[in-house]
Computed example of a mutant assay.
Amino acid sequence: MKTLYLIPARGGSKGVPKKNIKNLNGKPLINYTIDVARLLAQDNDICVSTDCDEIISFVNDYGLVVPFKRPEYLSDDKSGTYEVLLHAVNYFADRGKYYDNIMLLQPTSPFRTEQHLKDVFSAYTSDLDMVVSVSQSHQNPYFNLFEENLSGFLEKSKDGYFESRQEAPKVYAYNGSMYLINVNSLILRPLHKFEKIKKYVMDDIHSLDIDTPLDWAICETIIREGYIKHENS
């Protein structure tokens, strides 16, 4: 099973400017993801997909060759992950390099570990579309999530009457950390149409995804206060 480790890193970031190359605990954020990928893969199977010359320079200086600069049509706010994945698959296929699956690693998830990656691979089989990392949601459509009905009143998103959230069926949210994707499935349909998806549950701290300045401050605090011992920090 041959795996492409794809790290998508667009230059534009409205929440935290230049966050992918901003130092978190003295280390550029994207390097956390490169480091954990290198624990399992050779550099020629790790691809940073970016539209940004500055990110390319940072990654090249870290010793990882960026194989291409992402084209402009895949570089704005409306660019989808599906198109970015297909672009990378086609780039390598055009050069005679074929992959069975893609491990998509968002650089905004600095706390994933080698063991997390290994666990996702252990859960994967070739008949699946994807194994995806999730966290258990504290918000639940059976209990405390509501939608507005046609009369303008709130009603629970899903039918069910439970005394506490713990009694309600468990629900999960993608945490953005790891997506192990079957390339054959990807060629046939976009990710949101996948049907055979298996979850890999992570705890709240390791699931943290940086999207806002508050997220950044929380991650800095976690490292500084030693709430986790992370081999890549």
Rank of each mutant, 00 (worst) to 15 (best):
I34W: 02
D77P: 01
I56H: 01
C52V: 09
I56K: 03
M103R: 00
V48K: 05
L39Y: 02
L40V: 04
Y91F: 10
V48M: 13
Y62V: 10
G63F: 09
I46N: 00
F58P: 09
N90A: 06
S57E: 15
K78P: 02
V59Q: 14
D76F: 11
S49Q: 14
K69S: 03
N31Q: 13
M103T: 03
T81N: 09
M103L: 15
I102R: 00
S75C: 09
V48A: 13
V66W: 02
V59Y: 12
V48P: 13
P71C: 05
T50E: 15
T33P: 09
D76C: 12
I102P: 03
I55N: 13
S57F: 14
P28Y: 04
N31G: 04
S49H: 10
S57L: 15
Y82L: 06
K69E: 02
R38I: 06
L29T: 08
A88S: 12
A88Y: 04
Y73M: 07
D77E: 12
E72C: 04
I30R: 02
R70G: 04
C52I: 08
P28W: 07
G80V: 13
S57P: 12
I56F: 07
L40C: 04
R70L: 15
Y62E: 13
R70H: 05
E72M: 10
R38V: 05
S57W: 09
A88D: 07
A88K: 01
